[in-house]
Simulated assay, not measured.
Amino acid sequence: MRDAGLTLLELLLVLAILGILLALAGLNFGGSARALAVTGFAHELALAIQQSATRANTNNQVYAVRYASTGVTWGPVASSMTLSGCETASTAPALASATGTVAAPTGITTPAGWLCISAPGLVTRLDQLTPCNENGVSIPCLAVRRGTTARRVLVSGNGQTEVR
Results as ranks from 00 to 15, higher is better:
A46Q: 04
P111S: 12
L11T: 01
R146D: 10
I108A: 07
L18P: 01
V77G: 01
V137E: 05
R2K: 14
C132F: 13
A119Y: 05
A96K: 13
A46G: 15
V65K: 08
C132T: 14
R66M: 08
Q61E: 15
V123T: 06
G85S: 07
G136S: 06
A92M: 05
T88Y: 12
N158H: 08
L27W: 05
S69W: 11
S118C: 04
D127I: 08
L126Q: 05
A89H: 04
R125Q: 12
V62Q: 10
G113A: 06
V77F: 10
N57E: 06
R34P: 03
L22F: 10
L115I: 02
T99Y: 15
E10K: 08
V123R: 10
I139S: 04
P111Y: 00
Q128C: 02
Q160H: 13
C132L: 14
P120Y: 07
R145K: 11
S90F: 12
N59K: 13
A94Y: 13
G30T: 03
N28G: 08
T73L: 11
R152Y: 15
T54W: 12
Y63K: 02
M81E: 10
N59P: 00
Q128F: 12
V14M: 01
A48E: 09
A35M: 02
R2F: 04
V137L: 13
G121H: 12
F29M: 03
A96E: 14
E87Y: 09
I117R: 03
R151L: 05
L18K: 00
G31A: 06
A25V: 06
E162T: 14
T7E: 09
L12F: 05
Y63Q: 06
R55G: 01
S69D: 05
S80K: 09
A98W: 07
S97P: 02
L47T: 12
N158W: 07
S90T: 15
G19P: 11
S52M: 02
Q160R: 15
